[in-house]
């Protein structure tokens, strides 16, 4: 049988550090889409809390407990990250593994917000995007999920096939922001 070599989506493309921003790739962890069946939202939230210690997130929220995270990912959809879902959740929700479907980049540093402002059409300033925020939006023309755990750290999830484009666009913006800062 063939001996397959595991490769993360952005392997070889990062790290990139320019000016006050650093782009890296997050360690690959399980990512599961959790989508409640019709009328099961409350039961699912209770089951999530019992099994993983976190309720179903409100729109725009990122919840975390230990290494388990639960991010709102759209209407009636959350991503459970860092662990596989308890099998009891299957009574209330469609569970879909997406672990290797996403490129999970991390942009951090004092210039991170300025870099993202070049591509992202939502307000990521501290007042509009507090710690514990999850934003489903665009990075350039790419659909993305942006997580803000706090500080000046932003996590950018785009489809795996978009890894090269995402790193290229972020690198261009990092270079431009650094050039402006140097004027």
């Amino acid at each position: 049988m063939a001996d397959l070599i595991a490769r993360s989506p952005a392997q070889g493309l990062v790290p990139v550090e320019i000016g006050g921003a650093k782009l890296t790739e997050a360690p690959m962890v399980p990512i599961w889409a959790v989508a409640p069946y019709a009328g099961k939202a409350a039961a699912l939230s209770a089951a999530l809390e019992k099994a993983h210690g976190l309720p179903f997130p409100e729109p725009g929220a990122l919840l975390s407990k230990g290494s388990t995270r639960l991010a709102w990912a759209g209407m009636e959809m959350a991503f459970l990250m860092g662990t596989a879902p308890d099998e009891k959740l299957a009574d209330h929700a469609a569970l879909t593994e997406q672990s290797d479907g996403w490129t999970h980049l991390v942009l951090e540093g004092p210039a991170a917000r300025d870099v993202l402002a070049r591509w992202v059409p939502v307000d990521l300033s501290p007042s509009a995007c507090p710690p514990g925020a999850a934003r489903r939006t665009l990075v350039g023309h790419m659909g993305a999920l942006i997580l803000h755990p706090g500080g000046d750290r932003f996590e950018i999830l785009v489809f795996r096939s978009m890894a090269g484009t995402a790193v290229h666009e972020m690198t261009r913006a990092m270079r431009a922001v650094a050039a402006r800062a140097a004027l």
Binding site: P59, G60, P121, R135, R136, T137
Partner: peptide
């Protein structure tokens, strides 16, 4: 209603 005010390019 879910995401708050968003830019037209998302729609």
């Amino acid at each position: 209603p879910l995401c708050g005010p968003r830019d037209i390019r998302e729609f």
